[in-house]
């Protein structure tokens, strides 16, 4: 009975990786053509900044960047690069794209992990508490707070956080990831990053928090009315244990799905937060690349982003049966 189940994930993962490759290829091609539709190119952006619109200069830049080649050839080059994991060169930054992305990725991952963990811990606590005190004061308060966070745009929360905690109270820096004067490691270095991380992470967390709270509350309300909860109570176990062990584990599945989506979408979703707090992450890199028509860089980030989504989805699918054994992978 359990033997076939043990083999299943490998076949499942193999199948899913094949699907993932095709998905990413499709996304890459669609993105390539979408970006072609946008007016302007890197040469124009560069020339604009240099203050020259001389036709010869532009043609030179375009030849240098390969922008004068036919479209299909540009696409082929782009796809070859992805296939060989050699993403090419950003003319804008004068660095290879892999270097650029790798240097920005840790900041984004740190911001993502921190904000999602904060949102999960508080969201689960809020959601369970609200469900246990359904329609009573704690539930009303929590639901109101969740609604407020949900309805408020994250960038505005970010700006208000800066105003209150940086400008008025002076507790945290207004932006960036570390002070120039801060030591480059050790406890002081970690503390310095944490100080910079607090506001953007909280800003991002508030938005997720609102969603997680509502999801957990709804799930808990449904599960708490089920027969096996009454059976659990009839065993004499504590209300705490009934809620967090028996009910939550059953109520948490939709949350896993949404967290997976949030993780997958984080590269794009963090643009606003990263911009407001000048956080040196992928989101801002992508935003700048778009403004500067650095299509190579932009496309690479978009592809990376789709890889993220695919991995996050796969992870969610693999976690599902661990949390709920009635879910079987096929």
């Amino acid at each position: 009975m359990s033997a076939p189940r043990r083999n299943l994930p490998f076949r499942f993962i193999g199948k899913r990786i094949l699907q993932a490759v095709l998905t990413i290829l499709g996304i890459a091609i669609i993105n390539f053509f979408l970006l072609q539709l946008a007016p302007g190119d890197a040469a124009e952006a560069l020339a604009g900044e240099a203050g020259t619109a001389d036709a010869g200069y532009l043609a030179n830049l375009r030849r240098e960047f390969g922008l004068d080649r036919p479209l299909w050839e540009q696409l082929a080059t782009f796809l070859m690069r992805i296939a060989t994991f050699n993403l090419g060169y950003s003319f804008r930054y004068g660095e290879t794209i892999s270097t650029l992305i790798l240097s920005r990725l840790p900041a984004t991952l740190l911001l993502m992990a921190t904000s999602i963990v904060i949102a999960l811990v508080i969201g689960i606590l809020f959601g369970v508490t609200a469900a246990r005190y359904f329609n009573r004061l704690p539930d009303r308060l929590i639901s109101l707070v969740a609604l407020l966070f949900y309805a408020t745009p994250p960038f505005w929360i970010g700006l208000m956080m800066i105003l209150v905690f940086s400008v008025w109270l002076g507790w945290a820096p207004t932006g960036g990831m570390r002070d120039i004067t801060a030591p480059d490691g050790g406890i002081a270095g970690v503390f310095d990053i944490a100080r910079h991380l607090a506001l953007p992470a909280l800003t991002q967390a508030f938005f997720y928090l609102a969603i997680y709270t509502r999801l957990v509350r709804a799930g808990m309300l449904e599960v708490l009315s089920l027969d096996y909860i009454r059976v659990a109570r009839a065993k004499g176990i504590s209300e705490q244990r009934v809620a967090y062990r028996h009910a939550l584990r059953n109520a948490v599945l939709p949350l896993v799905t949404v967290v997976g989506t949030n993780i997958g979408g984080f590269l794009g979703g963090a643009v606003l937060t990263e911009t407001v707090f000048s956080w040196p992450g992928i989101g801002r890199l992508m935003f700048d690349a778009m403004l500067q028509r650095d299509l190579n860089l932009l496309l690479s980030i978009l592809v990376l982003s789709s890889v993220f989504v695919v991995i996050a989805n796969l992870a969610v699918d693999l976690i599902y049966p661990v949390i709920n054994p009635t879910v079987e992978l096929r």
Binding site: L226, V231, A234, K235, G236, E239
Partner: peptide
């Protein structure tokens, strides 16, 4: 008194319910 009853439930008084299909927690 819920706390006091916890020592009775399951230990002094056991209970069997109507719906066996729904009486067990699916995840344990």
């Amino acid at each position: 008194d819920n706390e006091a009853m916890r020592k009775v439930r399951g230990r002094r008084i056991g209970m069997v319910f109507q719906e066996p299909m729904a009486a067990l927690n699916p995840v344990f």
